[in-house]
Amino acid sequence: MSLDEKTVRKVARLANIEIADEDIERIGTELSGILAWVEQLSEVDTDNVEPLANVVNIELPLRKDEVTDGDCADKVLANAPEETQGFFVVPKIVEQES
C-alpha cells in the first residue's frame, strides 16, 4: 500500500500543515512505510475485545458547575502574536463573494 498524491494532500489538509510539492512523494513514502508497519495489528484477533481508552480506571470526577478561575484576560493575551483591546487578532475570515 502506498499513499498517492491525492491522499497525501488530503492528510496534510486534515492536519492543517502546508507541504511543498517537491515533498509530497517523500512524505507519501514515509507515511506508507509507517502504515504498512502498523498494519500487522490486523493479525490480532480482537473480536469481543472492548477498546481501552482509560488505562487506570479512574472515574472522571465531577465538580460543582461554578467559576473557579478567570478574570485574567491580560495573562491569556500575554503570548498572543497579535492582540488589541482584549481580543486576539486574526486575518480576515469573511470571504468576499466574487
Binding site: 475485545v49 481501552l52 488505562v55
Partner: peptide, 14 residues
C-alpha cells in the same frame, strides 16, 4: 480499522 483496533490491542496488552 486503525484507532479502535489499536485500542483493542491495547486492552490485550494490559
Amino acid at each position: 480499522a486503525y484507532y479502535i483496533k489499536a485500542q483493542k490491542v491495547r486492552r490485550l496488552i494490559l
